[in-house]
Design a protein around this nucleic acid. Structure first.
Lengths: 240, 240
DNA sequence: ATTCGATAATAACTTTAATCAATATGAAAT
DNA sequence: ATTTCATATTGATTAAAGTTATTATCGAAT
């Protein structure tokens, strides 16, 4: 077992033994963090790169009106932007959703790691490109998908991403995301999300009960979502 | 005069004479492109990096229903993702909006340029981070801003970005974007956008007539938008 | 076992934006 | 000057999603 971070990078590039061992070293400083803890806040001067080793987190922004927009979900293996240190201040915050284990890699170490090790660089850049593709998919969802399509699309995305890192047990997935949080990520109200979830349950495509996502009919869900996984840049089918 | 590309990079990092001269060489292959020409399409295998030297372009996606979502606007000096070549296929398309002049930099040349020249690398990475911040701002707009706030926010963004590259003549800006295109970028219908533009005109904050954006009352517009330029990562005020 | 607080579910009502349908306007081409 | 086409504007109607309010459920703590 590599751990989720190295595991993820290995799906994006071939890593040498040395590279893996260096990555293990670099993330050896992992520490436990409680749920709902801000790893970094909008306006802060960026520090080291965060790497999620266990648990979930999200990027978010708070608007003047006090509403929140969730910008991305981070799962085990995910990290924040590798060149974040180039910026003077963060334009968004990152908060844990569940209790988590988080490693940090200092910018200098990261630079050194990537300069000397093309495999690591390639894997990190690919991960970044996938994150960007995901942002584009979110913009598309928000702009042009109906609420039911949008919810279905996010569930497809989260299911696939979770499956990539072995978090699923076939049609089930433990999604530690409250309806409030999901609503804040989908640009809708919790009340409306709740209605849409009922609608999705009634179609028989999926159900989300408490923290348990069951994809009862993957093809139906994909069809509702208009889901095309190409933006995740993995040749992996939702249905085998 | 450096041209918009080098000009932009110089705002993000100090470039040596040699770096600038190499960048000039790398973009010497610029060619003219007509308006509404796809530089690359979703599903294509990515090729070289595109650099806009003149004219505007946009990234977009077409949904199964045939609707379009514009994901970003590219102005002179902007380029597409530098590591794009790592991906097997594009997850979106890029199309010129106006007649344009576009240079291309082969991946190998780009890698070499960035490997040996930290200034170029730093500037390119910073540009990428700003693009990501912009995507996050768009997600936030789509998810949590009302339509009038959303329109005002985009106008603030475009005005500031255009001003950074010297495209404005004080309160005016030539915005070669039809209401249809703007609507596709804002996740709304052209009809509704038209009504919102009227509303904005009536507040006295700004008016958009044909291709001419006039920001009559910058402070009012900023206030309506809830605009905080931090995501553009430049210490520049909309009002001096 | 009971209380508490967070989360979820549902209903009634209001607001916002989409849809459908005409018209109008303006620039370019003849 | 007139035609043409894309773009923009406006109105009437419908549909989608937000708001407010109430109640239900569940797990954790006492």
């Amino acid at each position: 077992m590599d751990g989720p971070f190295i595991g993820k990078l290995r799906r994006f590039a071939t890593l040498t033994r040395e590279e893996m061992s260096l990555l293990r070293e670099a993330t050896a400083n992992a520490r436990k963090v409680t749920a709902r803890h801000d790893l970094i806040r909008e306006g802060d001067r960026p520090g080291p790169v965060f790497v999620m080793l266990e648990g979930w987190a999200c990027r978010y922004k708070i608007l003047p009106s006090g509403t929140r927009q969730v910008l991305a979900f981070l799962m085990p293996g995910d990290s924040c932007d590798l060149h974040i240190g180039l910026l003077a201040e963060m334009d968004h915050s990152i908060q844990t959703i569940t209790p988590a284990v988080v490693a940090t890699i200092e910018r200098a170490d990261m630079d050194q790691l990537m300069d000397g090790h093309r495999g690591v660089a390639k894997a990190m850049y690919t991960a970044q490109l996938v994150d960007e593709g995901t942002m584009r998919a979110w913009i598309t969802s928000m702009g042009r998908r109906t609420s039911i399509e949008r919810v279905a699309h996010l569930m497809c995305e989260l299911y696939l991403r979770a499956r990539n890192i072995g978090l699923t047990s076939e049609p089930y997935l433990t999604l530690p995301l409250s309806q409030l949080l999901l609503a804040d990520s989908l640009g809708m109200t919790p009340v409306h999300l709740n209605r849409v979830l009922r609608e999705l349950r009634e179609t028989g495509a999926m159900e989300l009960h408490r923290s348990r996502l069951v994809i009862s009919d993957p093809n139906k869900l994909i069809k509702i979502a208009g889901f095309d996984e190409n933006y995740l840049h993995r040749r992996l089918r939702l249905v085998a």
